[in-house]
């Protein structure tokens, strides 16, 4: 299995642990990643409030590079905002016949051409669909018994295009968590918005969402995420959201890596902003049980 890899800007800086754990976990699962050379920012959630053409031209540039440099490969994207931005280019071109021409006129400034041939895939879609829980279970050598894990999907991996999961009641992470030997924490906040960039522009409003999510996770050992923005909002503002106890927040591939026997250091667990001593103790117990 091989994919064209688009890490996105966050994974180069504040979400380095997501990049490292994604690469390491996928390597253990026999997946090869070919990073798209010279990729650039997809516009995040900031392009659309500025320019409608740029909203599509920025991700189209990366898709054009992937077509040229890694023909025939699906593009794997770990960040949900990057994923949706790249995905919607093809979706909007399908319903507006003038659009591909406009996008290519813009890309012509660099001699690039978007042909709409790359399939855009979220990391979670690849893990749950292409690889599947059986292959994941086969790599586990440190079962995460006794761990209760709350799957958090966020918004843009699920909506508006419901491609690999139920956008109202997402479940795709559950078989993966179970494959690691952990218990799935039963809650209904997996698809609730974390506030996204309102955390910068209207923090008071975003904190209401974060508090609701963290409160609902009470009793879980950890929340797992599949997006650097969700991760940051849930891990960095716990005290401001008036949450009494810190709850650990990990990226899904970090949890996979730990169950595969990789160390806390290899999964850059030290970079996470919310990892409790209680979780670390449970991880050590899992380690001892499998030794």
């Amino acid at each position: 299995m091989k994919y064209a890899y688009y890490p996105g800007c966050s994974l180069e800086a504040s979400a380095e642990e997501y990049d490292v754990s994604t690469r390491e976990a996928l390597k253990r699962l026999g997946v090869e990643l070919s990073e798209i050379p010279d990729w650039t920012c997809c516009g995040a959630s900031a392009a659309e409030p500025v320019s409608s053409l740029l909203t599509l031209a920025l991700p189209a540039r990366n898709l054009a590079l992937a077509e040229r440099e890694a023909p025939g490969l699906d593009m794997l994207v770990p960040c949900s905002a990057c994923y949706l931005n790249h995905l919607r280019v093809g979706r909007e071109c399908a319903s507006d016949r003038a659009l591909p021409g406009r996008i290519n006129e813009a890309l012509g400034a660099e001699g690039l051409r978007y042909g709409g041939r790359v399939r855009v895939r979220h990391l979670l879609d690849v893990l749950a669909g292409d690889i599947g829980p059986e292959a994941v279970a086969a790599r586990v050598n440190r079962r995460l018994e006794g761990l209760s894990v709350a799957p958090y999907y966020g918004c843009q991996a699920l909506r508006p295009y419901a491609l690999f999961d139920d956008p109202e009641h997402p479940r795709s992470m559950e078989p993966l968590i179970a494959a690691l030997g952990a218990a799935v924490f039963d809650w209904d906040m997996g698809g609730r918005c974390c506030g996204a960039s309102l955390m910068a522009t209207r923090r008071d409003v975003a904190l209401v969402s974060v508090a609701a999510i963290l409160d609902a996770a009470a009793g879980a050992d950890a929340i797992v995420t599949v997006c650097p923005m969700c991760q940051m909002n849930l891990e960095a503002y716990q005290s401001q959201a008036h949450h009494a106890d810190t709850i650990s927040v990990l990226y899904l591939p970090q949890l996979l890596g730990l169950a595969f026997g990789l160390s806390d250091q290899q999964m850059l667990l030290g970079k996470n902003l919310a990892v409790t001593d209680a979780l670390k103790a449970k991880l050590r117990a899992c380690e001892a049980a499998s030794a």
Binding site: Q156, R159, P160, P167, E168, C193, G195, L198, A206, S209
Partner: peptide, 8 residues
């Protein structure tokens, strides 16, 4: 916050 719940 672009959660797309209304669009969905």
């Amino acid at each position: 916050s672009a959660c797309y719940s209304c669009t969905l």
